[in-house]
């Protein structure tokens, strides 16, 4: 094969690369994940995720990250379980969960729409893009998740694609130089 010199390594990384753009997550895979989510109860999922975490206090952030990856947000029982697993007080785990931007204590939509608010994006019109997304997704002032739990809109700090400002990331796909007129089409891809 043409691309064979790296062996299996290549398959693995090519798969990651592809998953960064539109064609990612073929429907089948997505359904499978959904199925997996439906089949397992929350407690089972929490214990399954935590069983892979080393029970040491410094693993707290990794534990919370893995839990959020699996569940989508951090429910109360997940924080408690994580604290118990790594051996820190629940208050500390709650403190950590509320300190970092990555963690969400509320359920978030299936697709996370992240609008970059770095300097370059701000200068090139990120606030307008944000308002346009709000309009297209039909979000009220102060809301960030659509009522059907499909999209969550979020402002993030710089993603490091400043040369392509303004930048939007939806579920690992990155869109550069987003124009207001494109917003509708971008959202339609995920409807």
């Amino acid at each position: 094969m043409l691309l064979s010199f790296c062996g299996d390594a290549y398959e693995e990384r090519f798969a990651t690369m592809i998953s960064f753009r539109g064609t990612s997550h073929p429907k089948g895979l997505r359904n499978l994940l959904q199925f997996d989510r439906l089949r397992m109860s929350l407690d089972e999922r929490i214990s399954k995720v935590l069983s892979k975490i080393e029970p040491k206090p410094h693993m707290l952030i990794s534990a919370l990250q893995s839990l959020q990856d699996s569940i989508g947000y951090l429910p109360e029982q997940a924080i408690k379980a994580a604290a118990e697993r790594v051996g820190v007080p629940v208050s500390k785990a709650y403190g950590v969960a509320t300190f970092y931007h990555q963690f969400s204590l509320k359920p978030i939509g299936k697709y996370l729409v992240e609008i970059c608010f770095g300097t370059a994006c701000h200068v090139m019109g990120a606030p307008d893009v944000y308002r346009e997304f709000e309009k297209v997704l039909g979000l009220e002032e102060g809301e960030d998740t659509t009522s059907n739990l499909k999209f969550t809109l979020r402002k993030v700090r710089c993603m490091g694609c400043c040369s392509l400002a303004p930048v939007v990331r939806i579920h690992r796909d990155i869109y550069g130089k987003v124009k207001l007129l494109q917003v509708k089409d971008i959202v339609a891809k995920y409807e």
Partner: peptide, 26 residues
């Protein structure tokens, strides 16, 4: 194929280049 390239459809470019290579430079 870094983040900024991928934001501009580098993965698709890679696939297209691969197809074209099969024709021109196997």
């Amino acid at each position: 194929s870094s983040t900024c390239s991928l934001a501009k459809a580098a993965a698709e470019v890679m696939r297209c280049v691969e197809e074209a290579l099969l024709g021109f430079q196997p």
